[in-house]
Amino acid sequence: MSLPLGFGRKGENRVCQLHKSLYGLKQASRQWFIKLSTALKAAGFQQSRSDYSLFVRRRQGNFLVLLVYVDDVILAGNNLEDIENTKLFLANQFKLKDLGQLKYFLGIEVARSRHGISLSQRKYALEILDDAGFLGVKPSRFPVEQNLSLSQFNGKLLDDASSYRRMVGRLIYLTITRPDLTYAVHVLSQFMDKPRQPHLEAAHRVLKYIKHTPGQGILLPSTGSLQLRAFCDADWARCKDTRRSITGYCILLGQAPVSWKTKKQTTVSRSSAEAEYRSMATTCCEVTWLKNILKDLGVNHTQPVTLFCDNQAAIHIASNPVFHERTKHIEIDCHLVREKIQKGMIRTAHIRTANQPADLFTKPLSSAQFEVLLSKLGVINIHSNLRGSVEGDRA
């Protein structure tokens, strides 16, 4: 939609009022999902309580999974005939366009080989570089300088903040398949309101790293265990402006990363042990959700999930329900870690800081340490590592 003539001039204080959405009523998307879910339930699908966009059907040994994103649908199962019948059912109910085997979905490229299924966003990454004019820039081997510490007050304000916001907004979507960018994008997104010159320079460093690894992605192996492992970490008082700590975690299903996050904690922690304990509580919530998703998909995860932490004090607080000066001020919801341990859902374990992959999500690292920890996450450069195997399978 373009503004009418007369708008957008300097000193203009008028705005456009939206009378009607371009795609119908404001509740159109909700009504569409209600109609779709009603039709799927009539066809025998059960809606997941953990993710309302996930539908599962089990019938006579056939297993079918349907995932919905607005009007885009992914369908997977163990019986091809059942999949075809479901597509015919949907075609009779709605106007349907069958795109065949999954290769490209919402900017995510899907490739299959004998090693497994690989996910990347190479095309989208190159579009970001092209939009910023960084296709010919000199590449960088890591996204954030090791001693970088940004503040909302240092540096000159940018004359045009829209380009910075657009750049960071696109980088946020790139983190869907790029855990290596999560911490850098988290830092940059804190300054969307009033970006300054140091923030823009840090964003350009991220683009140089993307130029070095545009095809970076994750691999979901075709073989291996279906056991969850969680790694959590915290960087105490990392934020210079608020002195809040940073929570970071990553969760692996077998050898494949399936969930990761970097988030600033909501309160100021008085010690590094407290910050680590809050990080453990956040990770426990994510583990609980993932176990419910696996249950909906027919994966029985009976063993306790191992939660690795590099802080011995936080591990002792989690396993030892003693009330003392170091724990009396911690919120009650953080103590859900103890409950999960007592129920046998979580098992804590210590890991050396040098081997902690969750460090990638809490602090800037050196080039050597960054590459070592990234290899532990199962993140690979798909187009360089698997090109031969994928092309051989296609042939």
Rank of each mutant, 00 (worst) to 15 (best):
A256Q: 10
I83D: 04
L126S: 05
E286P: 03
S21A: 11
L119T: 01
D98H: 11
G254W: 10
F323L: 07
G254P: 07
K264R: 06
F361L: 14
P139H: 01
I210K: 09
L150N: 01
T266Y: 05
I317W: 12
W260V: 06
T282D: 02
A91F: 15
D333V: 04
Q121A: 01
G298F: 00
N78R: 04
H350E: 08
D131M: 04
M1T: 10
H324L: 12
S367Q: 13
T247S: 14
S259Y: 09
A202H: 06
K240M: 15
T302F: 15
S271T: 08
Q121S: 02
S118I: 07
E12P: 00
G155V: 10
L40E: 00
N381R: 13
L252R: 07
A395D: 09
V15S: 09
T327Y: 05
G378I: 13
N92T: 12
I218F: 14
Y69K: 00
G133N: 12
K156E: 13
D233T: 13
L106E: 08
D130R: 08
A91Q: 14
T213S: 15
T348C: 12
K261D: 02
D393R: 08
Q60T: 03
D233P: 10
Q190K: 14
E276G: 03
F7L: 08
T242V: 12
L99Q: 12
L365W: 01
N355G: 07
R49M: 11
S53E: 04
D82Q: 07
C284D: 01
D193L: 15
S149M: 11
G116L: 01
L22G: 07
R196Q: 15
H350Y: 14
I382S: 02
N311P: 06
E325V: 11
Q342E: 03
Q342C: 05
P221A: 02
L102F: 06
D393T: 11
G61I: 02
V372G: 04
K194D: 10
C334A: 08
G254V: 03
I346V: 15
L148N: 01
G248A: 10
S272G: 09
Y69F: 02
Q46R: 03
K328S: 14
C239G: 07
H199K: 06
V56G: 04
R238T: 14
A275V: 07
N147Q: 11
K291G: 07
E276I: 02
V379T: 13
P179N: 06
K208I: 00
T302W: 12
L200E: 13
A42N: 12
T213H: 10
T288M: 12
R112W: 03
N320M: 09
L373Y: 02
Y23F: 06
F134H: 10
T282C: 09
L365E: 07
I315G: 07
K123R: 02
L181P: 02
K41Q: 12
C284W: 05
K376Y: 15
R278H: 08
N154G: 00
H186Y: 07
A43D: 07
P304C: 10
L3M: 06
H186F: 11
